[in-house]
């Protein structure tokens, strides 16, 4: 079904909410170790695609594969245990818990990669903690963190579970250019270390900094796919997404 080295694949994934088509015939192949950005205008189906990938919604049709295993009917927590980590578009760190508690919760999810969290995952987690400056804030309630650090906390939290693939839904929303650059640097480092990353993002500058390949979603379907240069040079993409003639 999916090619060698493919970590995550979807085939003809479709989801409707009532009469609204959220995704239609979405087929993707994310290679192991890839850093893929998914872009598209509002309502293109990006967040729905993520919700389908991690099991929040069940597709009406189509299949999802993780490491060639069909996970379409698996509940969310089982997909996480297969190595999927996800951050939400709206920050969902546990605001009433402190940083330490937030980071400890994912450690020990029964049967997850965490139990045998590899030295590599441990290194990635430690790296993120120190670069994000969360090390010295362990007893700080999450609700007292500034916005960008709350975003970083959620990424670190997911990393503490030792995922093999990171799905990030607009990780830099609301961040300053410096914070965005910092986030991009961390993601690139993690990707260089072998972590597969898929990012949904609006910020083209950020996409330019990190993406190896870009998928453009439009009206629930894959509209174009290629390198960032190919995508930004694509006339139709410029028209629908970048608002240029």
């Amino acid at each position: 079904m999916n090619g060698a080295g493919t970590y995550l694949a979807t085939r003809d994934l479709a989801k409707r909410f009532g009469g609204i088509v959220a995704t239609e015939q979405v087929s993707l192949d994310i290679a192991e170790g890839e850093l893929r950005c998914i872009i598209g205008p509002n309502g293109a189906g990006k967040s729905t695609l993520f919700a389908l990938l991690c099991g929040i919604h069940r597709p009406d049709s189509g299949r999802i594969f993780i490491k060639e295993q069909d996970v379409t009917s698996l509940p969310s927590f089982r997909r996480v245990r297969l190595g999927v980590g996800l951050t939400f578009q709206t920050n969902r760190a546990f605001h009433d818990l402190n940083v330490r508690q937030n980071l400890e919760v994912p450690m020990g999810a029964t049967g997850s990669a965490t139990h045998s969290r590899s030295a590599r995952s441990e290194d990635r987690y430690r790296y993120a903690l120190s670069v994000f400056g969360l090390d010295g804030l362990r007893e700080t309630p999450a609700r007292e963190l500034p916005h960008h650090q709350l975003q970083w906390l959620e990424i670190a939290m997911v990393l503490s579970g030792g995922p093999d693939i990171l799905l990030l839904d607009e990780p830099t929303a609301g961040m300053s250019p410096e914070e965005t650059t910092q986030t991009a640097r961390v993601l690139q480092h993690l990707n260089d270390d072998g972590l597969t990353i898929v990012v949904v993002e609006h910020d083209i500058a950020f996409v330019r900094q990190v993406a190896q390949r870009v998928t453009v979603l439009h009206q629930g379907s894959v509209f174009a796919e290629g390198s960032i240069d190919e995508i930004t040079a694509h006339d139709d993409v410029r028209r629908i997404y970048l608002g240029q003639a």
């Binding site: 969310s76 927590f77 245990r81 996800l86 939400f88 546990f94 919760v105 994912p106 029964t110 939290m157």
Partner: peptide, 24 residues
């Protein structure tokens, strides 16, 4: 215990807790 921390996480946000690998 760690079980207690997961309880707190479920109280705070069940979906987030499930997406950290727990059968809530």
């Amino acid at each position: 215990s760690h079980f207690g921390k997961v309880m707190l996480a479920i109280r705070e946000d069940p979906l987030r807790a499930e997406l950290l690998g727990y059968d809530i």
